[in-house]
Design a protein around this nucleic acid. Sequence first.
DNA 1: CGGTTTTTGGACTTGCAGGTCCATTTTTGC
DNA 2: GCAAAAATGGACCTGCAAGTCCAAAAACCG
Lengths: 203, 203
Amino acid sequence: MTRALTRKGEATRARIVAGAAAEVRERGVDEVRLEDVMAHTGTSKGQLFHYFPDGKEGLLLAVAQHEADQVLIDQEPMLSNLTSWPAWLAWRDRLIERYLAQGVKCPLNGLLGQTGRRAPGAQAIVTGLMWRWQKAITEGIRHMQSTGDIDPDLDADRAAAALLAGIQGGVLLLLSTGKIDHLEAVLDLTIDSLRAGAPTGGS
Amino acid sequence: MTRALTRKGEATRARIVAGAAAEVRERGVDEVRLEDVMAHTGTSKGQLFHYFPDGKEGLLLAVAQHEADQVLIDQEPMLSNLTSWPAWLAWRDRLIERYLAQGVKCPLNGLLGQTGRRAPGAQAIVTGLMWRWQKAITEGIRHMQSTGDIDPDLDADRAAAALLAGIQGGVLLLLSTGKIDHLEAVLDLTIDSLRAGAPTGGS
DNA sequence: CGGTTTTTGGACTTGCAGGTCCATTTTTGC
DNA sequence: GCAAAAATGGACCTGCAAGTCCAAAAACCG
């Protein structure tokens, strides 16, 4: 665990991870060859195995963590601020925008389901990401409940789970069909549904 | 296109596809070697390339089609019969049951997103599956609208898109986390939401 | 400085899995 | 039954990509 990385070393390592991540986004996990990474980052095989002694697997794991973190970062500060309906819509817009821009190049498409089976570590990364994501949504719902904008009787965690699943599915369908419609529909209808349950306008 | 397959030939071909499908479910798409298929189906390399001249790619394509069809078949007759709330719940139960049993072994996990990029044909298979699936849901919603059980003003296609996305995400999360909670939450909450919008009990 | 450790480059090895080929056996259809 | 076509078995080829190794260069640190 004690790392002996000099400045330069750390920079190189970071460059490799970033380059590998780009390569994964571009070609997909299974299609990435170490040579691609080397070419893309201007490094040699010696370096790759110097910084990632476990070889490709270790590198991909680092990439996965890097990308997983990025997914949540990209949603900030909206995701941590779901305190009003306009804020929810702003988050919605950010999601749409982000995934529209990303298009087919999902950095985690290989991770979900498949890679989870590969490395036990990858499983943990995905699970962790989903866990954090859902937790943030739950907190948003709870806040809206505290302000009376959402029915306090609603199971916040369950609703967050459903919304998260919807988002994942929406992204998945974006990946396979190229259309963002599903993601949009999920976000709009689910948020509407949350609003509808509010004590304000209900039965 | 002119096939010259004898009885035996057809049987062997089917055996290969079925065996390969099992193998894909078991090990995942990328981890399947032709030798695995050969061992599992008691066939030789000559046979594989005899029935699938395009090699692995052609075989996997056949497997994909086979599995995609199965996904919808497994939901019958419920999926084509969403004509009452109990019927909807029966469908829900069937989905839960099916995916609970299937667990991590999703035959299409490699297809979604990733393989879609690989073969242009795989893309079409997934898109086709999603299209048919969504269409069936849409028809269910339309029927419920016709009987007054769902608000006629609801955009059935959009609602179906959202539900489909939710299901996909639920399955995805089942694959990565091993828990069926997300799928359950999506189904229950979405169906509830459809009911809530009904003219019967609404504002 | 100068010894030590880290970083870097790249040639080389290795194993594997997809794909080719052809000889042999079986089935078909008349 | 017999010729043609299809089915089968398996040896062989081939290319690729991960991983190994070591020697040279650069950075670190007292």
